[in-house]
Design a protein around this nucleic acid. Structure first.
Length: 569
RNA sequence: CGGGGCGUAGCGUAGCUUGGUAGCGCGCUUGGUUCGGGACCAAGAGGUCGUGGGUUCAAAUCCCACCGCCCCGACCA
């Protein structure tokens, strides 16, 4: 491609709308432009890079035995009603109406469509396993689109769905996708970590997210450097050292705590009660019933874990009025001592806790000398707390760390939720009817592209891995006069490299060298081949790998050297 | 939806407090001089100051409403 013939609107200044480096660079290097919040146009360069990522994804999915199909983005609401997600997912569903005022859904994901397909077409165990995938535009009514392609209303996603006859087979399918994902991100030049992710009410160990470590990421990952445990903060467990607290010195005693509203207040004099010697009591409304949740004062509730414990996602924090009605006190003085009427769930770090202080369900009063086992009727012990940095790893006991990351992929064992809803069954060898066991596997393709930029850049611009670069070689003649020796050589190298299948862009613009150099570095082509009169006088051209050092190369060796340099990238 | 910030030429912005001629840099056009790291000179084009209403002799500027964008939170690839 000749630079003058394509469209690469680079920007010297950063548009004010961009906050993070990858978003700034995508705009400045002329890869994308915003239509409106959360909606972007891919310009020629951006589209080329996107296609590179797609192609890597496609090759690895094919290699893993998945079958590419293409499903409608426009979907009838009926199938969403059938799966129950018309209600449960209404927050993200974008809807449209046709001329007859009939409602349609712009697909945010395709479990409903693919399961309908399989229900109709698959009837025997002989047809399994199957894994269908597609690369397609998804639509989600994001509450807050952000950071360019990172979180958009419309984005490119690869989604795959596996169907298996048995649990063991489903695990094999899961593993294949897991391995394929690791290869895909590696080929894109991304450092990723696979972390255990929240499985919601389904439980189990079969959900992993592929995370790109980045300070600008929206997720928090808990990890252990010594045993390589890694999990999403929503899922992470920690050993959270049980305190060898003081022994209980007597029976519970009620004492006045006027004006105390928080754990923090009680840690100050005259009370001087450390947070870990307090029991925090939260009230949640779980399926219309109040439930008391007990945590150590210095711990935070993890709602995803609560969902696992109560077996439902229908819950919310109680409102002040509901709390008052249930416990006759306001937040700040709540406790579970002597409570019989409601379910009490306690975090396991409180097991055996003694000499604790907690609210007395009377405004301005607390109990002290509380011994959980003796004084509180706990119905259920669960892991409910948010892991915190520094807590011991549940595997090896070393201190855990937390860092931010971008989620680029998610593999998930679905079970039979959708096959049940759509009656996707098959006959097994014995002629018995079984539900297909499903898995689903997503990659945010456009997000992955931006994650690459977020991870691969320096002060001058993007530093593309060759695998996803829009062009791998930028030919930069410093003179473009058609009959000049410089331009003639540039044209010759351009033809030769192109004929060899190298993706070359020839910067044939009549611009000063500084402009060309700055642009090529901003865009980040892996190799720049500079051709100028000075070096040509020595029968040389200049090889400049992005981020590397400039080396003179004899013109006769130019093609071979470029090919070799590309191999290294 | 809650909290915060911002809307002035394609991009970045000044002006707004204290009402009166819309300014600068980049980019763009033309001519010239330049030509190995975002050149220089000269002449230009380009603006419903987000939208609507109000106050006023007069509104980018003051008031009200709405819209949009960005950031923080709940959601997710």
């Amino acid at each position: 491609m000749r630079w003058s013939q394509t469209f690469i609107p680079t920007l010297k200044e950063t548009p004010a709308e961009a906050e993070i480096i990858s978003h700034k660079l995508l705009l400045r290097a002329g890869l994308i432009r915003k239509l409106t919040g959360g909606l972007y146009t891919f310009l020629p360069l951006g589209l080329r890079a996107l296609r590179k990522v797609e192609q890597i994804v496609r090759q690895e999915m094919d290699r893993a035995g998945a079958l590419e199909i293409f499903m409608p983005a426009l979907q009838p609401p009926e199938i969403w009603q059938q799966s129950g997600r018309y209600q449960s997912a209404q927050g993200v569903l974008l809807k449209a109406r046709d001329r007859a005022k009939r409602e349609w859904i712009l697909g945010p994901t395709h479990e409903e469509v693919v399961t309908s397909l399989v229900a109709a077409e698959i009837s025997s165990y002989r047809q399994l396993p199957k894994n269908f995938y597609q690369i397609q535009t998804k639509f989600r009514d994001e509450i807050r689109p952000r950071f360019g392609l990172m979180r958009a209303k419309e984005f490119v996603m690869k989604d795959a769905y596996s169907f298996d006859a048995t649990d063991e087979a489903a695990q094999v399918s899961y593993k294949k996708m897991y391995d394929a994902y690791a290869r895909i991100f590696e080929r894109c030049g991304l450092k990723t970590i696979a972390v255990e992710a929240d499985t919601g009410v389904m439980g189990g160990k079969f959900s992993h997210e592929f995370m790109v470590p980045a300070d600008t990421g929206e997720n928090e990952v808990v990890y252990c450097e010594s045993c390589h445990y890694a999990a999403n903060l929503d899922k992470a467990s920690s050993r959270a050292a049980k305190l060898a607290g003081p022994a209980t010195t007597g029976m519970p005693e009620k004492f006045a705590t006027p004006g105390v509203a928080t754990i923090e207040d009680l840690t100050r004099h005259p009370f001087d009660t450390p947070a870990q010697q307090q029991i925090k009591t939260l009230v949640y409304i779980v399926q219309d019933k109040p439930v008391l949740i007990l945590l150590r004062g210095d711990h935070q509730l993890n709602e995803a874990k609560l969902a696992g414990s109560v077996g439902t996602e229908t819950f919310r924090p109680a409102e002040a009025a509901e709390i008052l009605a249930a416990l006759k006190a306001h937040p700040g003085s709540l406790g579970a001592v002597g409570v019989q009427d409601f379910q009490v769930i306690a975090d396991e770090t409180l097991l055996g806790a003694s000499e604790m202080t907690t609210g007395a369900n009377e405004d301005g009063f607390h109990w002290r000398h509380v011994e959980i086992a003796r004084d509180i009727a706990v119905n259920k012990w669960s892991d409910l707390r948010l892991a915190a940095a520094g807590e011991p790893c549940a595997n090896c006991g070393q201190p855990l760390k937390i860092r931010r990351a971008i989620e680029v992929g998610h593999v998930f064992k679905l079970g039979t939720k959708y096959s049940e809803a759509f009656n996707a069954c098959f006959l097994d060898e014995s002629g018995k009817k079984n539900l297909a066991i499903m898995g689903c596997y997503g990659i945010g393709v456009s997000r992955t592209l931006q994650a690459v930029v977020e991870q691969c850049n320096d002060k001058d611009g993007i530093v593309w891995p060759a695998s996803v670069a829009p062009y791998t070689v930028c030919l930069t003649p410093l003179s473009v006069a058609p009959e000049s020796a410089v331009m003639k050589l540039a044209e010759r190298l351009y033809s030769e490299l192109t004929a060899l299948g190298v993706e070359v862009i020839l910067d044939d613009r009549d611009e000063r060298p500084g402009v060309k150099f700055k642009d090529s570095e901003l865009i980040g082509f892996p190799i720049r081949l500079g051709i100028g009169e000075k070096s040509l006088a020595k029968d040389e051209v200049e090889l400049k790998p992005r981020g590397g050092t400039l080396t003179p190369v004899k013109t006769a060796d130019a093609v071979r050297t470029v090919l070799a340099a590309l191999q290294e990238r």
